[in-house]
Design a protein around this nucleic acid. Structure first.
Lengths: 222, 222
DNA sequence: GCAAAAGTGTTGCTCATACACCCATGG
DNA sequence: CCATGGGTGTATGAGCAACACTTTTGC
């Protein structure tokens, strides 16, 4: 089967930057390519958009197929289209990013991927194509988002402590935040509430657990 | 001549939202379509991306070809890709927006366009495809940009008064701003300077003219 | 008892807002 | 002389940053 057009058409792909926090470290999900070009190199999960699916759908599907991960919320990041960004043919890629709690990330390399794993943002492998650039821009975008809303809870389990929430901010922003001021700011945003439970069995005073208020579960720019 | 691929490829277009201020009114540039589908309808200028040009280049080229307008600065807005957004075939469009001073806008319908003209955002024609949605999102983005930098001078001539600058904000934000506070805020941003000249021959006290400091001429997110 | 994180308030500063009057010019 | 926008300063309140000590648990 083949498809013919009167004018040349670029291929369109999606790439997804999945951020998660594991072992108190900010990590990103990559796959090891199983095919040329750049076979064996690490790259962002992604792939071709099917002709009758939406861009967001393609992003979720490719992420699932290649890594086993499910993203409930994706934000479109930017569209990269330099003519020379892929050696095969003209490929325009629509990049997305997601924040996923590590306890909801079940990773299993699939389709087109020899392997799939998380890398710390402090110890990145060499990346295929322009994916290092895409990642840089994604981190920048997340920083922006954090500064004007409670956005970080997407990376946390349903119940989380103030400390855990604060760590998300600290890892993205790359600076330490004052415990008291942080708590005040978050409470003022009025988007989370106490569960009444505490995080027990730790070798220090147990911390209160919080959850997202149900009103604030959805978010979808623009 | 025809082009054949193993898998179906979507077409990729760019669409450009050009904002300008004319007669103290916020306007957007539209073309009247000269071809099916939606012949005769008004639409955002735009068209197919050539196979070997960048997305930004395509946006500038299409804008020039269809309307005669030149944009020195474009920002990528968002990529729209619903499978049913165009009846012809699957078309994914990368939307851009530009702010252009009306004295630098020379409009002349070209290529694929029966007519090209500015419409006030208060009196929009019916628009083809999903262009009304694109426009709405573009206005939202410009509002965001205005609130954290001097961005508005892109819509003004090289020399402009505080009043003119303030009107740009007022027209986008849809509210009146305090003259004194506005001046203070803009001066604090330290991005413009007095030219030493005044806007003469007006039937009131002449206003000082300002220009953008040369350091601040460029801007290019992300 | 000690290590380790949880939890809590106050103060000063900066920034945004609200607000009213005289000035320079053209007609 | 009048209509029109140009230009100026101050006072108040909100929000943010800086800062240290006591509490609760596991080991």
């Amino acid at each position: 089967m083949s498809y013919t057009y009167e004018f040349p058409h670029p291929a369109v792909t999606v790439d997804i930057v999945v951020f998660t926090i594991e072992n108190d470290d900010l990590k990103v999900l990559f796959i090891q390519r199983d095919q040329d070009p750049q076979e064996g190199e690490w790259a962002l999960p992604g792939g071709f958009v099917d002709i009758d699916e939406s861009l967001g759908h393609a992003a979720k599907r490719e992420l699932k197929e290649e890594t086993g991960a499910s993203a409930s919320f994706l934000e479109q990041l930017y569209t990269f289209g330099r003519p020379d960004r892929d050696p095969r043919e003209r490929i325009i890629t629509v990049a997305y990013f997601a924040l996923i709690p590590s306890d909801q990330l079940s990773i299993a390399a699939g389709d087109d991927a020899r392997d799939a794993k998380l890398y710390s943002t402090n110890e990145l492998p060499a990346l295929a194509f322009d994916h290092e650039n895409i990642l840089r821009i994604a981190m920048h975008r997340v920083k922006e988002r954090l500064s004007d809303s409670v956005y970080a809870f997407q990376m946390l389990p349903k119940a989380f402590t103030m400390y855990e929430l604060r760590r998300v901010y600290e890892l993205f922003l790359g600076e330490v935040l004052d415990k008291r001021n942080f708590r005040k700011k978050i409470i003022a945003l009025d988007q989370i509430e106490e569960t009444g439970e505490k995080r027990e069995s730790v070798r220090h005073r147990p911390a209160r657990l919080y959850r997202v208020k149900s009103v604030n579960r959805v978010a979808s720019p623009p």
